[in-house]
Design a binder for these strands. Sequence first.
DNA 1: CGGTCATGTGACCGATCAGTCATATGACCA
DNA 2: TGGTCATATGACTGATCGGTCACATGACCG
Lengths: 216, 216
Amino acid sequence: MPKETFFNLPEDKRERIIDIALDEFSHFDFQSASISRIVAAAGIAKGSFYQYFADKEDLYRYLFELAGQKKGEFLAQNPPEPEMDIFSYLYWLAEKGVEFEMSEPKLSQMGYRALNSGGMPPEFLSSARTMTAEFFKQLIANGKEQGHIDPDIDADLAAFFFNTIFSELGQYMFRRLAADDHGRTGNNEAFFRSAEARAIVGQTINILKSGMGKRS
Amino acid sequence: MPKETFFNLPEDKRERIIDIALDEFSHFDFQSASISRIVAAAGIAKGSFYQYFADKEDLYRYLFELAGQKKGEFLAQNPPEPEMDIFSYLYWLAEKGVEFEMSEPKLSQMGYRALNSGGMPPEFLSSARTMTAEFFKQLIANGKEQGHIDPDIDADLAAFFFNTIFSELGQYMFRRLAADDHGRTGNNEAFFRSAEARAIVGQTINILKSGMGKRS
DNA sequence: CGGTCATGTGACCGATCAGTCATATGACCA
DNA sequence: TGGTCATATGACTGATCGGTCACATGACCG
């Protein structure tokens, strides 16, 4: 946790530091990210940084938690309709996930790096990773109970599928946008509300549904 | 490319250097991997290293190419039956891929890191990445022609699915083995030839087949 | 023997890093 | 005014890095 000094900072200064730190950690993994670059870019003294944070890891953990918290808030602000079946719920989750990645690209990119480029304290990864894995497993268990998921599907493997596809989907859509966008608006938000984007997300869910849904 | 000096080395010395370098690059990404650690572990002088390789990147590219080459050789030694339909071919590819990862864990881990932990010359990633993407797209086009893949499936999205699942499957099975293996043999090779492993690979392909196969 | 040439060596260079600390600033209060 | 206290500062430390270079070694040849 950052020190009290950090939270006593004027909001704009605090936010500038966060923003610049996210820039650094979305471009480099934990080891390669540089506190020296961050303080230089933020225009603060090295010593000041260490008035705010205990060390590099303190900042990193804080940003990581911030990402999780912001995503939670984002999802809470756009709640799913109650009583959705599992694949409608997954559609909602994927769509909101992609929207979040577009509205908070630095935060998302840094979270993605944190989870996928290894090299930090084991619990860091594994606690977050197992949490999402458990979440998907629970979802699958429910789906089986409600008869929406083929009971013969290996729950662990299905969780792997969801986890993998969901964590990569945003990156994929971003790459695809960049490739398609031959000098177009460059307005990601707009694109990701477009019919085309919805269609890709929809087809993703349909593949999963056909692949794992209950034979009827 | 390494210098001639490197290839003039006695085979055991050359292989020890490669092995130790793979150890380093399978644990750290390009930026964080350390030539100093490699030469210390290999028991050679820093200056000697630079008699063999132009620089860090030279070694990295060489190992990366070696990984691709070894995998190619591995697949060539266990060729698929001719005239397989696309999903049988994918099963073969997944099974051999997992077997390769188990027989050459350092090489595979280093290749995985190279592709997934970003931060090196763009062509490095993107040329390898687009190559495999094109490979899968071609496979999908063939599958559509032969009536094995639903023609309504977005080929690009399907390639993303294959690419993503295939690149993560080995890692997943490794994690799952480690979790299941509560003090068992620790013999990965044996496990990955087991009926259980084959069943997981089989179900993976079945999910993809049900998800994208032609409706009949 | 002396000369040549590929190979081996490790001290050294300049850069960069995370983190520290003595000191400075400046707001607030007595 | 003078004292106190949270905050700001940047020179500094010790470590590590990738890469260089002047020199050592030793095999082969005349």
